[in-house]
């Protein structure tokens, strides 16, 4: 049995623990307070800067560490933690939490089963309030936009060779977040577009993902997943959430990786690739040109 600890709400992780096999997980508001012999691995979901600082220490103590993004980690920091993990003989991984959404997991399964054929187009929307934009990544882009870039690369299964991005610029533009369009071109024709905005008024966000393949398509859209509430005037739409399963999927995958000694280091390679694409997006926004990533 693998014993995991996680940052954050205890009762939430208790519910996760009841749903996983081959291990257990418990949440704690302060990892430093736990005796180091009481757990085997650490799962940090959306860690604070202080929790990020503790990663090196956990690795040095022989604990496996998985960070679920968004995460503020420089390439140098990543390299340092990777070296520490290798010396200690433990796993270190950085993953995009969004990949573990049940809808995204099912999409991955259907793609891997070849049901949609060759992916030709990925279309994503993410709109949120300006307050939600924590910009935890090292770039100036929204951390969530960076996660969507990762999702596009993950679904496509390869890196883009050209990146273009543009931003809405109204005259006397003040105080309504950023509205950015990212356009990725992949070798031999496939393409992806991400429409990001942090201009929504306070309230819920909006997400949509569609994937068009050569023999089928998938649509995961908040527009389709709304329940209606009637309380006079116009009805309210309330999103049907995917619930705790995202955390369960993440935890189960980490447990199995430890048990089977599956190498998690590819996640770090992917994270480095994501950094390059993120920088290309920023460069395109600044230069107003498409950025070629061929040979990078």
């Amino acid at each position: 049995m693998i014993r995991l600890v996680a940052n954050g709400d205890e009762s939430r992780w208790q519910a996760v623990s009841a749903r996983v096999r081959g291990g257990s997980i418990r949440g704690t508001p302060d990892l430093d307070q736990l005796p180091s012999d009481s757990y085997d691995a650490v799962l940090l979901n959306n860690p604070t800067p202080r929790e990020t600082e503790s990663i090196g220490q956990s690795l040095a103590q022989g604990k496996h560490v998985l960070i679920a993004s968004p995460v503020e980690l420089s390439p140098a920091g990543l390299e340092s933690f990777t070296s520490t993990a290798k010396r200690a003989g433990v796993q270190f991984a950085v993953v995009n939490f969004d990949r573990y959404l049940p809808s995204r997991q099912l999409l991955r399964q259907q793609l891997d089963a070849g049901k949609l054929g060759r992916v030709g187009l990925i279309r994503m929307y993410r709109w949120e309030t300006d307050q939600a934009n924590s910009s935890a990544h090292q770039s100036t882009l929204s951390a969530r936009l960076v996660l969507d870039l990762d999702l596009a690369l993950w679904i496509m299964g390869l890196a883009p060779h050209v990146v273009f991005a543009t931003e809405a610029r109204l005259p006397q533009d003040t105080g309504h977040g950023r509205t950015i369009q990212v356009h990725l071109g992949f070798p031999n024709g496939p393409m992806a577009m991400i429409a990001y905005s942090s201009a929504l008024p306070a309230g819920d966000d909006y997400r949509s993902l569609s994937v068009v393949g050569s023999s089928g398509a998938a649509y995961s859209d908040d527009h389709q997943n709304m329940q209606l509430i009637y309380r006079g005037d116009r009805p309210q739409a309330v999103r049907a959430e995917e619930g705790i399963r995202q955390l369960v999927n993440l935890t189960q995958d980490f447990i199995e990786a430890i048990q089977t000694q599956r190498d998690l280091s590819p996640s770090l390679t992917e994270w480095s690739r994501l950094n390059k694409v993120t920088h290309a997006v920023e460069e395109s926004l600044a230069s107003r040109r498409a950025i070629s990533l061929e040979g990078s």
Partner: peptide
């Protein structure tokens, strides 16, 4: 049979269009 466009409009508005004849099995 598949295309995507990012458009910069006068006045600073941005737009995008995804368009395709995606096959009868796609929807």
């Amino acid at each position: 049979d598949l295309g995507s466009m990012t458009l910069e409009m006068e006045g600073g508005v941005i737009a995008s269009i995804a368009i395709g004849r995606n096959g009868a099995s796609s929807h």
